[in-house]
Simulated assay, not measured.
Amino acid sequence: MADQGRVTQQPAGSSASPDTRLGFLLAYHGGITETVIRKALATTGLTPRHTMTLLQLAGGPVTQKALIEKLDVDPSVLVSLLNDLEGDALVQRRRDPADRRRHIVEITPEGTSRLRKSDVALDTVERELFADLGERDLATLRGLLGRLRTSPEDFSCTEG
């Protein structure tokens, strides 16, 4: 790792060491974090995507279209997620009485209970993962991560 947690930029065209490539560092730590989170959530019977969906629904019912936007997923992916969650009685879909073309999605009491269990699992992971960071560091990290450009449309190199 770079000295004192500082990462320096290499001049264009030079061979960079692994600790100077922020994208690789983020991917490396993200991969490990995802593995640990998956293991922790497995005890609840949920995947990270299922958990994220339930987290979005915890604030109250939303339209399926709004959920697609909040989760930033393809509609077919959301339908698959909701089918899984509905099959386990964790969410419920119903037609919007004001517009029969729209579906309203809401978390069920069983979904709320399962989400509480996932919160406990995630709290444990986060306590261990961020044990060496103080509140100020965590606030800085949240701010920096919130500023990352991680939508597919942000990247010209991903266009066909």
Rank of each mutant, 00 (worst) to 15 (best):
residue 89 A to W: 11
residue 92 Q to R: 14
residue 68 I to C: 06
residue 83 N to Y: 08
residue 107 I to R: 01
residue 67 L to S: 12
residue 95 R to Q: 14
residue 72 D to H: 10
residue 95 R to D: 08
residue 85 L to T: 00
residue 104 I to K: 05
residue 65 K to E: 10
residue 97 P to Q: 08
residue 88 D to N: 08
residue 107 I to L: 11
residue 71 L to R: 09
residue 70 K to A: 15
residue 75 P to K: 09
residue 74 D to M: 09
residue 99 D to V: 04
residue 59 G to C: 06
residue 79 V to R: 07
residue 90 L to W: 01
residue 66 A to P: 00
residue 106 E to P: 05
residue 79 V to L: 09
residue 106 E to N: 05
residue 55 L to R: 12
residue 87 G to F: 10
residue 70 K to M: 07
residue 94 R to C: 06
residue 90 L to C: 00
residue 90 L to I: 01
residue 58 A to K: 12
residue 56 Q to V: 07
residue 67 L to G: 04
residue 62 V to H: 13
residue 113 S to L: 13
residue 52 M to H: 12
residue 88 D to M: 08
residue 107 I to N: 02
residue 54 L to Y: 06
residue 95 R to M: 06
residue 105 V to Q: 06
residue 86 E to N: 14
residue 106 E to Y: 07
residue 69 E to P: 03
residue 98 A to V: 07
residue 104 I to L: 15
residue 81 L to Q: 14
residue 63 T to N: 12
residue 84 D to C: 04
residue 60 G to V: 04
residue 84 D to R: 14
residue 107 I to S: 04
residue 95 R to L: 05
residue 55 L to F: 06
residue 78 L to G: 00
residue 104 I to V: 13
residue 84 D to V: 09
residue 109 P to N: 13
residue 53 T to R: 08
residue 75 P to D: 01
residue 94 R to K: 14
residue 99 D to T: 05
residue 99 D to C: 03
residue 89 A to E: 13
residue 76 S to C: 02
residue 77 V to W: 05
residue 106 E to L: 15
residue 55 L to Y: 07
residue 93 R to P: 00
residue 73 V to C: 02
residue 98 A to N: 14
residue 105 V to I: 15
residue 53 T to Y: 06
residue 87 G to Q: 04
residue 69 E to H: 14
residue 79 V to W: 05
residue 113 S to V: 11
residue 75 P to G: 08
residue 61 P to S: 11
residue 83 N to E: 13
residue 83 N to P: 01
residue 104 I to Y: 06
residue 95 R to K: 13
residue 99 D to Q: 10
residue 58 A to D: 12
residue 59 G to F: 02
residue 85 L to R: 00
residue 110 E to R: 15
residue 57 L to M: 09
residue 83 N to F: 09
residue 90 L to E: 02
residue 103 H to W: 12
residue 55 L to H: 07
residue 113 S to W: 12
residue 95 R to F: 03
residue 95 R to P: 07
residue 78 L to M: 06
residue 101 R to W: 10
residue 94 R to N: 09
residue 72 D to R: 14
residue 98 A to M: 12
residue 97 P to M: 05
residue 72 D to M: 01
residue 109 P to K: 14
residue 82 L to E: 05
residue 85 L to V: 02
residue 64 Q to A: 10
residue 110 E to N: 10
residue 65 K to A: 11
residue 93 R to Y: 10
residue 107 I to D: 04
residue 86 E to P: 02
residue 96 D to K: 08
residue 69 E to Q: 13
residue 57 L to Q: 03
residue 104 I to W: 08
residue 104 I to R: 08
residue 112 T to N: 11
residue 100 R to A: 12
residue 64 Q to G: 06
residue 111 G to P: 09
residue 95 R to N: 07
residue 90 L to V: 01
residue 76 S to I: 11
residue 68 I to Y: 05
residue 108 T to F: 01
residue 106 E to R: 14
residue 96 D to P: 06
residue 110 E to L: 14
residue 65 K to C: 02
residue 52 M to I: 11
residue 84 D to S: 12
residue 88 D to S: 08
residue 103 H to K: 15
residue 91 V to N: 04
residue 52 M to S: 15
residue 89 A to Q: 15
residue 57 L to P: 11
residue 95 R to T: 15
